[in-house]
Design a protein around this nucleic acid. Structure first.
Length: 289
DNA sequence: AACTCCAGCAACCGCGTTGTC
DNA sequence: GGACAACGCGGTTGCTGGAGT
């Protein structure tokens, strides 16, 4: 038994909104407000539309101060950073971009930004490992990474139990060989950079109360350049399945992670690659692998 | 000019969450 | 505390217009 429809589909108009309908809705809401009841609104406003449709039209198009098109470089960076840290929480991302709607950002990501990022990233060479440049020198637009490590080639016969989480393992089964190679390299990287690296693993005690979530947004440009402005970045707490806890700074969410997320979102459109629990603490995002 | 392909975007759908009784 | 209604969100669909052939 399915869910009951939100309205009588036979008696509501669907499809694109006409200028007259827009005017009616805008006029009504500006004068009367939404009244907190979208279901009743269309009837009161004299519209033959579903309440949901009215709400969507208002929020995405008619609402004052809405901006459409022409995303700036800064907006791109914010979207990328947030996507790397919280995934496809479009409404949360939209909250950081004044005048942008979640639908707009979602469309922009799916049609342009994702492709732009993929195009920016050079395909990885076999036996080489991509890592964020630690130099502060400005990177060229076509190369954001330094190859700093060589790793043994990916070998599917080697057990990855010690390297990857169960979620990653599940994702492995859904990936092609190139994606598996990437994930394998990422897992090796986490070993290479584990506890010995003060830069990459941050202790709980370092957290200071004045850090706010907003302050913590590190722009992708900072990731690219390895900028030292990462000292106040949001801590992203990684809870490993094997109960080893470590915290990753936003600095650790580089192009690899974004690519990883893109890959996983492509291979598994219906399942989120990350579970985001913002209730655990105000200052940390909880990411469960 | 006619047709096909495809990117971009508006709108829809359905599920999870929240509020109310 | 359960049932129901409404809201909010993210994924998906389908229309439109421009580019390419």
């Amino acid at each position: 038994m399915g869910r009951a429809p939100c309205c009588d589909k036979a008696n509501v108009k669907r499809g694109p909104w006409s200028p007259e309908e827009d005017a009616k809705l805008k006029d009504y809401i500006e004068k009367q407000g939404t009244g907190g009841n979208w279901i009743a609104l269309p009837h009161k406003a004299g519209l033959k539309r579903c309440g949901k449709s009215c709400r969507l039209r208002w929020l995405n198009y008619l609402r004052p101060n809405i901006r459409h098109g022409d995303f700036s470089e800064e907006e791109d960076n914010i979207i990328c950073s947030l996507f790397a840290s919280i995934g496809s929480r479009w409404s949360v991302i939209a909250a950081h971009l004044h005048g942008r709607t979640d639908n707009d950002i979602k469309n922009y990501w799916n049609t342009k930004l994702k492709k732009k990022l993929i195009a920016t990233m050079a395909p990885p060479q076999p036996h080489q490992h991509l890592a964020i440049a630690s130099s502060s020198s400005a990177p060229s637009s076509s190369s954001h990474y330094n190859m700093i490590n060589s790793l043994p080639p990916y070998n599917p016969s080697i057990s990855t139990n010690q390297l990857i989480t169960p979620h990653q393992e599940m994702m492995m089964t859904m990936m092609d060989q190139q994606q598996q190679q990437l994930l394998y390299q990422e897992a090796m990287d986490s070993l290479v950079n584990s506890p010995n690296s003060n830069k990459r693993i941050m202790s709980h005690q370092e957290d200071s109360q004045e850090q706010s979530t907003n302050k913590g947004i590190m722009l992708l440009s900072d990731v690219r350049s390895g900028s030292s402005t990462t000292s106040t970045v949001t801590r992203v707490k990684m809870e490993q399945h094997d109960h080893h806890h470590e915290e990753r700074s936003m600095e650790d969410y580089g192009m690899e992670d974004i690519n990883h997320l893109i890959s996983s979102s492509c291979t598994s459109s219906s399942s989120n690659s990350l579970w985001f629990d913002e209730n655990k603490t105000e200052d940390t995002f909880m990411l469960y692998y």
